[in-house]
Simulated assay, not measured.
Amino acid sequence: MRRIYHRFPQSIDLDFELARPFREVLACIARMHDTHTTVRGADGLVKERMLVQIADGRTQFLDLNDLAPLAEKVAEAADFRIDLQRTLLTPEKRLPVSENVFFLRIVDKGAVTECYVAKEGRLGDLDAMDLRKMLKGACE
């Protein structure tokens, strides 16, 4: 079943291919959901968290945990909403640093998977190339 969001942006920031079949890319994206890393930044420790949602009913997004197993419920094409959150960890409190939201469409092209990325809004310090690096890293 195709899972397409009818309001996917018409203006694409980046179009690229992953040299992996569609099912493998789906598995990579599912593994990235609700993960986090901690890195040392200029101001201290920064927690980077990734949340992934998938299109549901053409009008909304659904948490990936609510659609398991993903490979049995998705075919041909899928739209995702990826939320990358950065939080500064201090001894007293947690301070939000930035939030980057991307729309990602993946399309089955046989041995490769076509990917389209569009960033929602102008806020945040990441761009479509950063998401591409994350996807390539997760799938290799």
Rank of each mutant, 00 (worst) to 15 (best):
residue 2 R to Y: 02
residue 2 R to A: 08
residue 2 R to T: 12
residue 4 I to V: 15
residue 8 F to M: 08
residue 10 Q to F: 11
residue 11 S to C: 06
residue 13 D to N: 15
residue 16 F to T: 01
residue 17 E to D: 13
residue 17 E to K: 06
residue 18 L to Q: 02
residue 24 E to I: 03
residue 24 E to M: 06
residue 25 V to G: 01
residue 25 V to I: 05
residue 26 L to I: 03
residue 26 L to W: 00
residue 27 A to D: 05
residue 34 D to T: 09
residue 36 H to Y: 15
residue 36 H to F: 14
residue 38 T to V: 15
residue 38 T to I: 15
residue 39 V to M: 07
residue 39 V to D: 11
residue 39 V to N: 13
residue 41 G to Y: 06
residue 45 L to Y: 11
residue 47 K to N: 14
residue 47 K to H: 09
residue 49 R to V: 07
residue 50 M to S: 13
residue 50 M to I: 15
residue 52 V to T: 03
residue 53 Q to L: 12
residue 54 I to K: 00
residue 59 T to D: 12
residue 60 Q to F: 05
residue 60 Q to Y: 05
residue 62 L to V: 12
residue 66 D to R: 15
residue 67 L to H: 04
residue 67 L to Y: 01
residue 68 A to I: 13
residue 69 P to M: 09
residue 69 P to V: 08
residue 70 L to W: 01
residue 70 L to D: 00
residue 71 A to N: 13
residue 73 K to Q: 11
residue 74 V to I: 07
residue 76 E to T: 09
residue 78 A to V: 04
residue 79 D to H: 03
residue 80 F to L: 02
residue 80 F to S: 02
residue 81 R to M: 12
residue 84 L to R: 09
residue 84 L to I: 14
residue 85 Q to F: 07
residue 88 L to F: 05
residue 88 L to Q: 07
residue 92 E to Q: 14
residue 94 R to A: 15
residue 96 P to F: 10
residue 96 P to S: 14
residue 100 N to W: 00
residue 106 I to F: 00
residue 109 K to P: 02
residue 112 V to H: 04
residue 113 T to V: 06
residue 113 T to P: 01
residue 116 Y to S: 10
residue 116 Y to Q: 13
residue 117 V to T: 08
residue 120 E to C: 00
residue 121 G to Q: 08
residue 122 R to Q: 14
residue 122 R to I: 15
residue 123 L to N: 13
residue 124 G to T: 06
residue 128 A to M: 02
residue 129 M to I: 14
residue 131 L to C: 05
residue 131 L to F: 05
residue 134 M to A: 10
residue 138 A to Y: 02
residue 139 C to H: 03
residue 139 C to A: 12
